[in-house]
Amino acid sequence: MDILIAAILTIITAATPLLFAALGELVTEKSGVLNLGIEGMMIMGAIIGFFTVHQTDSAFIAIIASMIAGALTATIFAILVLKFHASQVPTGLALTIFGIGLSALIGQSMIGVAYEGIPKIAIPGLSSIPVIGDIFFNQDGLVYFSIFMVVATMWFLNKTRAGLILRAVGDSHDAAHAMGYSVIKIRFLATLFGGAMAGVGGAYLSLAYSPLWVEGMTAGRGWIALALVVFASWRVGRVLLGAYLFGGITILQLHAQALGIAVPSQIMSMLPYLATILVLVIISRDKSKIKLNSPASLGKAFHPSR
């Protein structure tokens, strides 16, 4: 039983950064912008969060700083793509490379520095329920925040007028423009939100998952988050499901080794990435599903005619 609880707890910590990043990318893509720079924004959030926590000793300030770092990185992308009509795919790739490089530079003095990890917050009463209490109500603040953001994003996209406008811009930017909505501004904000969420996802890695700084520590999680959005066919609830599924696969490798299953560790570490490819292939087989849910203007540059 204890092993199971431990496993579930680690799944949650592995899933949370994916959940943040994928949620942000989902909102960005819903507005019609394809930002492939999640990895770069995540790692900027990771290093700035870790750096800030050492300067201020406040996890809260560090998390805010990581969101700002992610959003600022996204701003570079947004300006290039939305203002100067740069092609979204190469710009996103460049952003990833840029983020990995810059974070390594900033993090030089942080290598080998220790941090005890952000504190867990036990919810009074609920956390003392056996089994469930430990799993669900004795987590760090970011886990609660990630679940809150899932609900908030779902509500925003489906119930609010602003969410409707955002989806409309992603569906047909020309029609939205003709109705007088500011396509560029809405996409800009959505991209910033995506950056902030990727930033906090990155900070989760360096502050909670393995509280230290290692160069390139996001290790492809940005790409998994990107795949998650497609896996979820742009639906918020499924992003939650997908993030925990992938979190589970990531953890599987650790526990398989602990249980002494004789599979080479390299193969186990490949698992999440293999699963990503597999899932994308399976999902892409059903063209109609992709077509109906994907934002129709995804990745297309918008040139207003005025």
Binding site: L164, A168, S172, A175, A296
Partner: peptide, 19 residues
Amino acid sequence: FQHFSLFDSLTVVENISLG
């Protein structure tokens, strides 16, 4: 408009609301 400014993935009422 000649080319409708409509959003395919939204419902009729959502489309009208946007306008």
